[in-house]
Design a protein around this nucleic acid. Structure first.
Lengths: 217, 217
DNA sequence: TGCTGTGAAACCGTTCACAGCT
DNA sequence: AGCTGTGAACGGTTTCACAGCA
């Protein structure tokens, strides 16, 4: 059993991805301010990172900077968006129209540049046919596989109870959704070539409790 | 600039904490099944981890196992709960009674063994005085500092828009809340001796998009 | 001069392999 | 024999330091 690198079948290291997300945010802000050029030092300072690290992160993908000058803000921003697959809008579908699913669908965190929440899916007949507060339609989960031809979701979010999570993952993978973000408190395996990111909210609470308990000594 | 280890002022490494959370879950399940003894191999297999890693994680805190036998399930479970500060129930307060805050307050992920969501705080007069679906009271954010004497919250969750996040953090830290879980898309700094964990939901989407973009080549 | 791109060093977490206890 | 606890090897990421180009 070669154990396929388990959870995050990384093509890109998670910390790198996180830093480049920050850098992209910084570039958006700088562009809005009309700044043309930025150095790795300025970017690093803004987020408390190491400048060399930012340069290394970028260098993995090409040579984007100008020696002695820094990076051209609009050019780097465009290149980064392309790199991160954000040059076009990614369609997101959420399985589970409970409190969490609907909150995510309407959340500003999920309705940002580059992403569009296309639909919520549920099995509860009372919810199906409705809409979330911001107007995301709630559809019958049974129709997800059919819709996959027309809808072409890029990311499937799992926001159902633990018992239903594996089935949700199976349906998403079976419908050709290539990436899954799972909020249920069980690890869903990365079938086929599907990227899975498990986000267990309970872990965050337990981690903080742990830190508090360890500190007191 | 010594740069105070930035985001996670770790006393415990994040991966260790995550694995021990898993182990604790495993122990709960095993105890429910009446299993008395478990080896690091059995625990590791259950979660796709390395047995030595689990032993090392535990060994940091003492010698809990019995050579040739394994670990006693009830004893290890008790010891782990104590270690992780879960021997008593931790009070959680959530700042921001919007969709996300209320969803978290009512979520099964937040209402687990060891945690109790005591209150939601908001500044919207129309929400104050109300309750979430499961009955968590929505209180006036201005009264949080006063309540800190009686309430003694262990963990403060920030579920407000980005613009309000720093102020929310300031109020929590000022009220003596020793740990913060921040869901707003800006990094809140770890003031004083306050533990901060930033969870940026946008990063998860961007990371998946990144993985998809990199794979296609 | 100034800042990028990058080899080399340092650091940290993971995995291996085995000594030691039951 | 079986399994823990742990030193040693390994691998990946971060940081340093500097060569090279504008």
């Amino acid at each position: 059993m070669p154990e396929k690198k388990w959870d995050r079948p990384d093509g890109v290291a998670a910390p790198t991805s996180e830093r480049l997300s920050l850098v992209l945010r910084g570039l958006r802000a700088l562009e809005a301010q009309g700044v043309h050029t930025v150095s790795s030092f300025q970017l690093a300072e803004r987020f408390g990172l190491n400048p060399a690290q930012i340069r290394k992160d970028l260098a993995q993908f090409g040579e984007f900077g100008v020696r002695g000058v820094g990076y051209r803000v609009p050019a780097l921003k465009a290149k980064l968006k392309e790199l991160m697959g954000l040059e076009r809008t990614r369609a997101v579908v959420i399985v589970g129209a409970g409190n969490l699913g609907q909150a995510l669908a309407d959340s500003r965190n999920f309705n940002v540049d580059g992403f569009k929440v296309a639909a919520l899916y549920d099995i509860d007949g009372r919810k199906i046919g409705g809409k979330s507060r911001t107007g995301v339609p709630i559809l019958d989960l049974a129709t997800l596989p059919d819709a996959s031809g027309t809808l072409k979701a890029d990311i499937g979010v799992i926001a159902v109870p633990a018992e239903a999570a594996l089935e949700a993952a199976r349906i998403l993978a079976g419908s050709g959704v290539p990436a899954i973000l799972n909020f249920a408190p069980i690890s869903v395996p990365a079938a086929d070539g599907v990227f899975v990111r498990n986000v267990d909210l309970t872990f965050f609470l337990e981690n903080l409790s742990f830190q508090l308990a360890v500190r007191r000594r």
